[in-house]
Simulated assay, not measured.
Amino acid sequence: MRILFIVPSYKPAYIYGGPIVVIARLAERLVQLGHEVTVYTTTANGKTELDVRPGQTMMVDGVAVKYFKRITKDHTHVSPALWRAVWRTAKQFDVVHIHSWWNLLVLGAAGVCRLRGIKPVLSPHGMFCDYVLTANNSKKKQLIHNMIGKHLLTNTYLHVSSHMEWQESIRLNAKWKTEGGMVFNLVDLPVKDYARKENEVFTISFLSRIDPKKGLEILVQALARVRFDYRLRIAGSGDEAYVNKLKQLVKALDMEDKVEWAGWKGPEEKFSFFAESDLFVLTSLNENFAIVVIESLYVGTPVLISNNVGLSRYVDDNKLGWITGIDNIDEVAGKLTATYENREERRRIAREAREVINQDFNETRLAMDYVGLYQNSK
């Protein structure tokens, strides 16, 4: 198949987080299966631009990528050059796959596809969740949806990566009940093994972007109420003011001797970081998928995640960890205590998790599932 990806940003713009990795991984695996993948994206790299040649095709790990100039330097990513390219070439592809929503770049691309009689596959990557819809610029999003978004969404075939995202999405467009499907995101997992050992002090890890959405305040407040000894290792980076706010909370709760600020971890370092932990915790307010959950389980580290994490149903169904609500701090503290006390269950997960993840997140099988989804979208 000839496949066109349209995405606001692409690697090496890792500043935008997990979706960049997920989208690139899918494109690369489809190429390895013999499909021809082209990516139309922008030079976006936060408030700066990538050091690439706009408008020229570049091979990036086997994928043909065209980076187009954007005329805005914010999250709208407006790029008339990209829209023109979509208008000229979209019909040359067997399928057009649009990633993300709400920004003007993809809305414009979806509009061009409609005018050209093309029904693209749409992966919203969590953009239809309640948290996003009610967060910053919620009135603007509602206005965009009522004026043009609703109309454009009826001309798309939905792809989601979790059951939670499916439920959130079909509330926005009921047609997707029969015009969509769910396939997990591809996760880049290493081949090597990572030695695990139980720590003398129960070690809890967090690894992600340090952001209010991640619910770290909830975790810290809950740990302040437990009665067992623990060590909390926080890995990641974030806005300096927010990180300082968290550090002040830790100080106010007299937890400084129990909390380690481990800094940002690279692709190789993070798996060792997970393996050194007895439990990985993610008490997010919202998380469309959460690659870190799969990465932690892959090295055998059990997880405790909020019921707002997209993979919570998967973790629960496969008995790979614990799920908690986050509206009540005592509930979170209780779940933390349960994980600490249930050592045999943690040992069972450590023994069995990698085999489960290897089976369910085999990249070749998942990529073939995407091809099936593309065929069903016709």
Rank of each mutant, 00 (worst) to 15 (best):
I305Q: 06
A290Y: 05
V371E: 14
R313N: 15
R343C: 03
E345Q: 13
V299N: 11
I329T: 12
Y298C: 12
I323H: 04
S272Q: 15
P302D: 09
Y298Q: 09
F271H: 09
D327P: 04
T301H: 01
I329H: 00
I294Q: 12
N288T: 14
A290H: 05
F271P: 09
T339H: 00
N318A: 08
A275N: 13
S306E: 11
R354P: 08
L311T: 13
N308R: 07
E331I: 00
K335S: 02
R343W: 12
T339W: 00
F271C: 11
D278F: 05
K319S: 14
I305W: 07
S296T: 09
N307I: 03
A275L: 14
W322F: 04
G325I: 02
N308A: 13
L366H: 10
V281C: 14
R351T: 08
L373M: 11
L366A: 10
E344P: 01
T339Q: 00
G334D: 13
T301R: 03
N318K: 14
E287H: 12
V309Y: 02
L311D: 03
W322H: 00
E352C: 15
G372I: 06
L282K: 09
V356D: 10
D330H: 09
D278W: 00
T364N: 15
D316I: 02
F274E: 10
S284L: 07
D360A: 05
R365M: 09
V332F: 00
I357W: 02
S296A: 13
I305K: 02
P302H: 13
A353N: 05
I349K: 03
S284R: 12
E295F: 00
E331A: 02
Y340T: 01
L366Q: 05
N308T: 10
R348H: 08
A290D: 05
F280M: 12
F274K: 03
T337M: 01
L304T: 04
E352V: 15
I323E: 09
R365W: 03
L373K: 11
R351A: 07
D327N: 13
A333E: 06
M368K: 13
D278C: 06
D278R: 02
S277H: 11
G300M: 10
N342F: 01
L311E: 02
A367G: 12
S277W: 13
G334C: 01
V299C: 12
L285I: 11
E287L: 11
A338S: 10
F280Y: 14
Y370V: 03
A275G: 13
V303M: 03
N288G: 15
A350R: 09
R343T: 13
G325T: 07
T324Q: 02
T283D: 08
V299T: 15
T339K: 00
L311R: 01
F274Q: 09
T324N: 05
A290M: 07
K335C: 00
F271Q: 10
I294K: 10
S312N: 09
F361K: 12
L373E: 10
T339V: 05
L366Y: 07
G372Q: 15
A338N: 11
E295C: 03
T301S: 04
A367Q: 05
A350F: 06
E287M: 07
V309K: 00
